[in-house]
Simulated scan of single mutants.
Amino acid sequence: MSAPPPSPRIDEILAQARDGVAQLEPAEVPAALARGAHLIDVRSAVTRDVEGHVPGAVVIERLVLEWRLDPSAPWRMEDGPALDDEVVVLCNEGYHSTLAARDLRDLGFHRATDLRGGFRAYHRLGLPVAGAPTRYVD
């Protein structure tokens, strides 16, 4: 009996999830919001409360993200993005958001991507940070 093939490592999973996907650069956030992109913050409350919020971002807990965005779900958020809309997910450093964006693409949001480097890269550029979220969807 042969051994099962080795499981992929997380760096391989991330590389596969990013393959062929243009991540949004932190400096591009204001322009993306101006053109109507949906910026979704999936960071934990502990992190958001300490570090702040990107103005214009909608906070959705990662645990319920797909249910709040799926156009066919009864739990969908009001005014959520359409499958053809640009959706940008952000997390702390751009890893968790890569996997969330992959899952949204699997759900049909073919323009879903994430913010390269996450909130911390955005903050390092000195871009605006707010003390409260623009919108919180539970």
Rank of each mutant, 00 (worst) to 15 (best):
A130R: 14
P55C: 12
D114N: 15
I60A: 07
G126C: 06
R76H: 05
P30D: 06
C91Y: 06
A121L: 10
L104C: 12
S7D: 08
D114Y: 11
D49Q: 14
R43T: 03
H96F: 14
V42H: 12
M77G: 03
W75R: 07
D85G: 00
D103C: 04
Q16H: 13
A3Q: 09
R35I: 05
G117I: 15
A3W: 13
F119Q: 03
A130D: 14
F119P: 08
E86W: 03
C91R: 02
Y136C: 05
A132Y: 06
R9M: 09
R76M: 01
R111D: 05
P26I: 08
V54W: 05
R62C: 05
L90W: 00
V59W: 13
N92D: 06
A82C: 05
Y136W: 11
G108E: 08
S72I: 06
W75H: 02
S2L: 08
F119M: 11
P133D: 04
A112M: 08
I40Q: 04
V88N: 09
D19Y: 06
E86P: 00
H110N: 13
V89F: 00
G94E: 02
V129M: 02
A121S: 15
V54Q: 05
R76Q: 05
E66M: 07
V64M: 10
Q23K: 04
S97A: 15
R18H: 07
G118H: 10
A27L: 10
Y136H: 09
T47L: 02
L125E: 14
Y136M: 03
H123P: 00
R18L: 15
R135D: 06
P30C: 02
E12G: 07
V50Y: 13
D11L: 11
P6R: 14
D106E: 14
A27W: 02
R18V: 02
G126P: 10
A121Q: 01
P26D: 11
G108A: 14
A132V: 12
R124V: 06
L125D: 06
V46P: 00
V21D: 01
A15V: 08
R124C: 03
V42K: 14
V129A: 03
A15C: 05
H110F: 11
L127K: 00
Q23F: 12
E51F: 09
A27Q: 13
D41W: 07
R102L: 03
D138K: 01
P133Q: 13
S7G: 03
G80K: 02
L14D: 01
R120C: 02
I13A: 10
F109C: 11
S44T: 15
E51H: 10
V137W: 04
P55L: 09
A34V: 05
P30V: 04
